[in-house]
Amino acid sequence: MERPVSRPEVQESAAAPLGVRLRGPTRATATPTAQPPFRRLLTLRLVTLLFGALLFGTLLSAAGCHSAPPMRAVDIDRSSPEKDVLLFEVEIDAPWAPRHYRDWAQEQLDLLGNEPRNDRYPGIPVYEVTYRYRIGRQTLAEVSFRREGEGQGLLVHARTVVRPVPGWLLDRESRRDD
């Protein structure tokens, strides 16, 4: 849809997007027939290369390719602050990607089996299992699993809350990207 524009320079500025830079049509000063063949070929190769790179970048991006620091737990401490809650404090040596907190906790929970127990209160079914990740005294993330179906079903991932860590470079999942 065209908007009313009175001056050519205004139109040019209106075309400048806020979030993404777009380039306008290339200014052509000669017809293709006026171009030497090698030059036309060069232009075509450049265009092909450009779009190829763009497509490659899109595919890489869609595949979610990124690097992430290795997941390594230094120490794990188990406690039970409530009768039906298990808390695991996990000491790590570097922040992880947000999904990795959940995935690692899920693996640990699977190792516990479907019916983890609080040994001090064996008659009370565990309602919540939380993994709290920290470096020293600083909490980086908490992953909670709760029984679904208002507390009667299986333990499922309820939420993962990742806190920003000043001074650490996280992978792209956790960076602002607008």
Binding site: P17, L18, G19, V20, P98, R99, Y101, R102, H157, A158, R159, T160, V161, V162, R163, P164, E173, S174, R176, D177, D178
Partner: peptide
């Protein structure tokens, strides 16, 4: 259900 502490939302 993974929530990060970023304050700014995404959009352009």
């Amino acid at each position: 259900r993974i929530f990060t502490g970023d304050l700014r939302q995404e959009g352009y």
